[in-house]
Nucleic acid binder design. Structure first.
Lengths: 334, 334
DNA sequence: GATCAGGGTGGAAACGTTTCCACATCGAGA
DNA sequence: TCTCGATGTGGAAACGTTTCCACCCTGATC
């Protein structure tokens, strides 16, 4: 591959001049610029990022550490962030923690040796986030205690309240919660907000109606299996993310329950698939576009040395048909 | 951040020795190794990849160019490939072409300046794939004419035949096809195989029953809109990927058609969501794990200078309930 | 006509590694 | 005792950039 040396030689100028001409980083006569550009084109020259990084101490690359790429919520976030970064000619190295703290550590080590300019992390609960000191860091979707990094997240309190209010309005009083892992802030916040909202309506759930999952589909199954065997059975189940909702849904189906009639199933987190389910699922939609853009912008600020703060993005209730009222016992029909 | 110089100083050895000790790349006494290791640990030393790459001409990074991360088929592939690479301490830079050729070009340019060790690409149809000469390259899911790069893909011929045979066996004879873009090899192969299979059964479809989409959800809507207005109406629609199937499904629903009763809708490409749809969708499942691993292994071979060849991964028909027989006219009940 | 400002240019250092080469040490074999 | 090979070590070059600095012009200002 051609180096800047080759380009300079072909253009008949020095390496220094070639560099300035290509980057516009210093004085260079229009003629020279043209000459160097042409030489670079002819040779198919592409700057060597490793060499540039070594010299400039920047990589024009950021790290994105997700907890699960296969969760559409996160893959959509990755999409938005990658798009925004590409517009700035910044590359994104996406890694996966698979909801595991050891993977998170490994990924962070790897990102550190890459000397990425900054990091957007969806942190694993229960782990201390070991990031090289001085490395710009933005937390996405979840917070971690004691970290000074800005946090970009949905308004979990609002979203939870919207859904609980909706359910109660429909007449539900026996509402079960499949919470996210309580080691994660989003899991905690959503559960707490749901409980507070329920409390406000005077319908505190039975303890056995609160089950902790891990944001993955399997745990939705397991939780539903436990929940649906209780007597009395709850009339509605609110799952803490889209994957667990899917788990709950298929477990309920397997038991022959008609969703939306025998029992309501709803989800925090919307999904493009929800409108097509049987029946279409009511959900609290997160504004993925805003979340991703805010995270990228926050990181960009940090990298540029500007201060940056937390962002809370509002949620929106999307009512579909997975919680019609027919399942509700008469006592509440008043 | 500590450099190897600092480590060497702290361990009281030369830089050269420190490097050898840390990498095991040359002779070093056990005592020295221990000493250097400890010094590195104390300092929290992480090798600077840019510097290493500059010297070694390797980056231990590969590029993965996808056509659409938000398509679960591809995000699952990304997951598998990233996992496999991580086990080798290889990083993956994932980029998105968004099914657009200009984005593909931009991404390839960017990947070239990163000097990735190799490239796994899901190529856009209709574009010539400009990859730096000598750069190891593996094509995934789709082939491109004239490229000598190994191709890893599902057995489109088998999958198409499995599905057509199944439909015909159920009594369908009026089968419509929402094909993938004919600029992509997978789109072409699947359509050709479907037509051949239909021919074999003596039921060549009417021209208006063959519609070309672009693998995205919207085009499924559009195709279905056209298809469902024809008279006679086809009794079954076979979509070329999971996203277009979703589009067809929701369009059909919007028109009040009962899927699996009034009309059958099936898909090339399975999805974790398909079992939950209304009704659960019959699909040709691709073996994503095998595809991803094969692609990574092929690239690894190429990077190591070993030859590598095409891989065709078998598909599997997953029968659910989106194509029961009630929609089929009597003429075929014999 | 001398001075000055500033644009354009080239030489060379520096970034942090790895690795080639030369050298020293040591034990074993002649 | 001398040589030899193996082993461990350090110096220094090289990878491809960017950027500091010094230099040479040119044209304008005094």
């Amino acid at each position: 591959m051609a180096t800047i040396r080759d380009v300079a030689a072909r253009a008949g100028v020095s390496v220094a001049t070639a560099s300035r001409a290509l980057n516009g980083s210093g004085p260079a006569s229009p003629g020279t610029v043209e000459l160097v550009r042409r030489a670079a084109d002819d040779l198919g020259y592409r700057v060597n990022k490793a060499a540039r990084s070594l010299r400039t101490q920047r990589t024009d690359t950021i790290g994105l550490l997700l907890s699960d790429v296969r969760n559409p919520f996160f893959s959509d976030l990755a999409y938005v962030i990658e798009q925004a970064a590409a517009a700035d000619h910044v590359s994104v190295i996406t890694m996966n923690a698979d909801e595991r703290t050891d993977r998170q550590e490994a990924a962070l080590r790897s990102l550190a040796t890459q000397r990425v300019d900054g990091l957007i992390v969806v942190p694993q609960g229960g782990a201390t986030l070991e990031v090289p000191t001085g490395m710009p860091l933005v937390l996405l979707d979840r917070r971690v205690d004691g970290s000074p990094a800005p946090v970009i997240q949905s308004d979990n309190e609002l979203g939870s309240r919207q859904m609980i209010d909706h359910l109660v309005e429909l007449g539900h009083r026996d509402i079960a919660l499949v919470a996210g892992p309580q080691s994660s802030s989003s899991g905690r916040e959503r559960l707490a907000a749901c409980l507070a909202a329920l409390e406000g309506h005077g319908c505190t759930p039975r303890p056995e109606w609160i089950v902790e999952g891990d944001f993955q589909e399997r745990s939705g199954h397991v939780a539903a299996a436990a929940l649906l065997d209780t007597t009395p059975r709850p009339t509605a189940v609110f799952a803490g993310d889209n994957l667990m909702a899917v788990g709950v849904l298929s477990e309920a189906r397997k038991r022959g329950l008609r969703i939306g009639e025998d029992i309501a199933v709803v989800s925090f987190d919307d999904s493009r698939w929800f409108p097509l389910l049987d029946p279409p699922m009511t959900a609290v939609a997160q504004d993925v576009e805003s979340l991703g853009l805010a995270a990228y912008r926050a990181l960009k600020d940090l990298v540029a040395g500007r201060p940056s703060g937390d962002v809370v993005v509002p949620t929106r209730l999307v009512v579909r048909r997975s919680c019609t009222t027919s399942s509700i016992p008469a006592r509440r029909s008043a």
